[in-house]
Design a protein around this nucleic acid. Sequence first.
DNA 1: CCATCTTTGTGCACGCGTTCACAAAGACAT
DNA 2: ATGTCTTTGTGAACGCGTGCACAAAGATGG
Lengths: 255, 255
Amino acid sequence: MATGRTHRPATRSRGIPEATVARLPLYLRALTALSERSVPTVSSEELAAAAGVNSAKLRKDFSYLGSYGTRGVGYDVEYLVYQISRELGLTQDWPVVIVGIGNLGAALANYGGFASRGFRVAALIDADPAMAGKPVAGIPVQHSDDLEKIIEDNGVSIGVIATPAGAAQPVCDRLVAAGVTSILNFAPTVLSVPDGVDVRKVDLSIELQILAFHEQRKAGEEAAAGTDGGAPAVAARSESADKGPDGDVPAVMPA
Amino acid sequence: MATGRTHRPATRSRGIPEATVARLPLYLRALTALSERSVPTVSSEELAAAAGVNSAKLRKDFSYLGSYGTRGVGYDVEYLVYQISRELGLTQDWPVVIVGIGNLGAALANYGGFASRGFRVAALIDADPAMAGKPVAGIPVQHSDDLEKIIEDNGVSIGVIATPAGAAQPVCDRLVAAGVTSILNFAPTVLSVPDGVDVRKVDLSIELQILAFHEQRKAGEEAAAGTDGGAPAVAARSESADKGPDGDVPAVMPA
DNA sequence: CCATCTTTGTGCACGCGTTCACAAAGACAT
DNA sequence: ATGTCTTTGTGAACGCGTGCACAAAGATGG
């Protein structure tokens, strides 16, 4: 998953494990699809397959919410949709601001998945005066001078940062000072926030790098010594003379 | 997390734990910043702070790669940059295709974090004939009819899916059939792929929902601090949702 | 009302990841 | 050389998450 979390005091958010919370949206999506097809009930096996998880895991996840199933039958789709929505807090309206209306910010503003789940884009904010007033996704962009006022007027508690890395921390500080307590960060930076503020991070580059690692592993071990071409001029250490240019320091793995 | 298929065989990817692999890009970014400031060495404590993790965790992570530190001094920045880059496979060039050039796909194409880390956008692919030939981020969009040929001609093994949900699985199947073995999925769908293919998922909506959960919990603690408020989720089957400060709202359903 | 069948809910064991705490290793000063 | 000081590398304990396997619960049919 694409996420990182800043220090959480392991409060185990009300008895529901973090891992379970992270899967609830997945279940909710699968259940919504079933609901649209007017499927009345679903077994843990079927729902687990639709959500891409293990059925035992799904049952255990639901057990944290309560006993909402009927043995021998399964789960009532509509009822479960409601319970999970309520548990996630999606039965209320969450005004959200997006700061940084570049390519990514515009994409986020246009992303349908937000509005369809109780999230409402309350404002788009950018530091570029030339952007001010220009509508993106039907919403006029506002200048970041008014950030605090926008937050307060709309009662925003969730902010999305889609600025360049350098601007992320200052923007974050201002958001927090204005009252935002949850931040979704797309900028490739570690944000530092006071206690009580949640930060989740989505980093496109990191995801690709993790894929590259596995891809390299799949490609085989001989690839490491074979291709020498694209190395980005990172000089190897001068001291250790016994190690060749591409000679590997013995990795931890035996074989 | 790596959301491959149902239960992958717990691949301890070459002795390096998944959790460690997921943090390596984080360390690499912090180290790169230090390198640009010409900092020669760094202690585990300093680097851990910069990466936003625990120093013991960082040292253990590095221990999986080998012993690259010097006791009493710390780690050589340049050397560590090289080692991590090599471990992640970033010393080679990875051609990547992006399928689905909507708002998000265009944002990804323009995203600088790709090119700066050994990833090269080899092609942009879209199903809309009107898009064909139109340049995005300086790269002409190609029609999806040519997907297989593009993959093969460029030796692409990593694909990024930024299509609508409905198109994701068919696109995924074609990518895999053409030889792609790693997929970064932005579409809100569970992709099913054969063994040996890695899928990582980035879901903007899910991240926001997780934030909403914590946000709701924080709001509930404030409102009901001291009362029975901490009642575990085993509330009765009635709709006694008393957590939110505002009243109960019927479940929001996507249109 | 009883038997059978289906599916949930969960106790339990196991493995991974995190954290602590400290010995070992090297730098540095004398 | 020797002692001191700093920092790494890691053994060990612990906690969380996962998956198995099964008993309990309810539906269903006779």
